[in-house]
Design a protein around this nucleic acid. Structure first.
Lengths: 336, 336
DNA sequence: GTGAAAGCGCTAACAG
DNA sequence: CTGTTAGCGCTTTCAC
């Protein structure tokens, strides 16, 4: 069956007995069109099932109505059971929906992926780009911005050349509260499982842990993971080997904390009696671990909302804060 | 700062001292261009940082190079820690990447969302659409197909009017194996926590459970959830109230099974000694529950791959199987 | 208030 | 092998 040729403006105009310009005005809601004609046009649109061709439209308007959210990450990380990404996506989604913009989600794990995203954005598929979960020095934000494409980053960028605004959370505040609690409850050997050291979240949380211990007489005990559950399992084993007497561990993400819990159980340590565990993120899972996880909550939904808000503002030619830092909060449950 | 006006074909042509057509040929990799000229053009492209305007291109080619994957679902369901969606996304991703197509992800939970997706697709933003996680009678597939847009569904559609091809898994086979195992290990009162009854996965798995019990002398004991963890908690409580003596439960998703495990523990039941539990999906979490979950594995990656493969084939004008049903497999761990 | 006409940036015949 | 030409479907001045 032949795909039914989609009706064009022309077709609608003919049917309604008006010019293309008039149809265009009605479709785009211009106020200066006579009631009577509006009705005629709308009816024709209805009958023909007319839908504007976006390519043609954005060729002249230079606008697409969609915004890309790109995760510089493998799909299985973005969609691991780490609720952080989803939260951001939902926040962006909400904000964009309210602004009647379409969200376009993309992932770029490989250099080739980055290349394609860049072509996609530079090719004019979207009006703006949100970039999250960056690793190391990501050239993408700076590149896009140089091309005149509005960009907002999720998390401070490691690329000094990147001058695009970003939205981040107060890692230092959250980690500080966590470590302070461990200190206050009398823990003496406080270790940490850090996140990947090519990501701001990993770097900043480790730095904050170190800073918090510096003020006490405790020494730091560090293992590095990559925010996955399996890496938490492995890191916890290392920690136990390094210092069998440790009695607390701050874990830079709940997912890694879940892995650590498993290792501790396997090693016969009771949580929190023998070892206190505090995570970071407050994902849904944290309420279902054994025991439920004390953790640092970050407002992921807000991160998304704010990011979307910022691009929208840039697109509208308004100025924006170069950095937005959102609060975190310690949520105490049974594990520490 | 003024956004640096993006160079056009014209600009490149001028710089290289050739016509627009020639530049177009080089950019699109047409073979019939002299080496020498190719070099000149490429250099000009490089120097100017030229990137083709997609709107202009697809206006004439009627192609966009991107494929939409839409989840008829709220974002927090798609990105819950249910690894099923991610698996599909990764599969689609892989296949599309290989075909040099761009994946565009979309979510549509509300009628308004559906409307927007429809406009987006009908407006010519994408060459084809994959639809997954459908609830009830989704009109979207049929509507798009009527518009001549290639569509492939993930899971059989409940809409009789929908004639688009689909990819699904063998629910009956998987559930059958699970219930049979429960029977073979001597369980006498085998309950089930079913998935939502407006989704094929929910419906088919419940039907398969019933069919499997029909051949034995056991009666069916049913509670219905919605694939979320919390609903698993609640459903398990109902089941326990209905029949305190039940000694096995087949749960239609691992996430619900996780919730059920929590309820069983709270109720003082030992798993699998008192109650055997078998889930469905085999998400990563299944290896980390207490005890690890026996479950039915479905090849989510393949679902995605096949879906993508199918649209690509339709777009190329080839014929496709109306239905592809993939195998499932029982994975035995400690819980049942 | 409405129509005519120009043109967004590109590809695809068709000549040469 | 390369250039010329004609649109793709739409928005937007500019007249009327």
């Amino acid at each position: 069956m032949v795909p039914p040729a989609r009706p064009t403006l022309e077709a609608v105009a003919q049917r309604a007995g008006v010019s293309r310009a008039t149809v265009s005005r009605v479709v785009n809601g211009s106020p200066r069109v006579a009631e009577e004609i509006q009705r005629r046009v709308r009816r024709a649109v209805e009958e023909l099932g007319y839908v504007p061709n976006q390519a043609a439209r954005s060729l002249v308007t230079q606008r697409t109505g969609s915004i890309a959210l790109v995760f510089s990450e493998e799909a299985n990380r973005v969609f691991s059971d780490d609720q952080v990404f989803p939260g951001i996506i939902r926040g962006v989604s909400q904000e964009l929906e309210a602004a009647d913009r379409q969200l376009v989600l993309m992932m770029a794990h490989s250099p080739a992926g980055h290349e394609r995203i860049q072509r996609y954005a530079t090719g004019g598929h979207v009006d703006g780009v949100l970039i999250a979960s960056m690793h190391g020095v990501e050239p993408l934000p700076a590149t896009l911005q140089r091309r005149g494409i509005p960009v907002v980053c999720g998390g401070r960028s490691l690329d000094r050349a990147n001058r695009s605004p970003y939205v981040d959370v107060d890692h230092a505040g959250g980690v500080g509260a966590a470590v302070r609690r461990l200190l206050d409850t009398g823990r003496r050997r406080i270790a940490t499982i850090a996140g990947p050291q090519d990501m701001v979240a990993g770097i900043d949380r480790l730095a904050a842990y170190r800073a918090a211990l510096r003020d006490s007489d405790r020494r730091s005990i560090v293992a590095v993971g990559d925010f996955t559950r399996d890496s938490g399992v492995v890191a916890m084993r290392q920690l136990l080997a390094d210092d069998p007497d440790l009695d607390a561990v701050f874990v830079a993400s709940d997912l890694m904390a879940h892995g650590a819990l498993r290792t501790l159980r396997d090693a016969g340590r009771r949580v929190p009696d023998d070892v206190a565990v505090i995570g970071f993120d407050d994902i849904e899972l944290a309420r279902f671990t054994e025991p439920p996880l004390t953790t640092v909550r970050q407002p992921v939904l807000d991160i998304g909302r704010r990011m979307a808000g910022q691009v929208l503002r840039i697109i509208d030619g308004q100025t924006v804060e170069p950095a937005l830092v959102l609060d975190t909060e310690l949520v105490v449950r049974q594990s520490g």
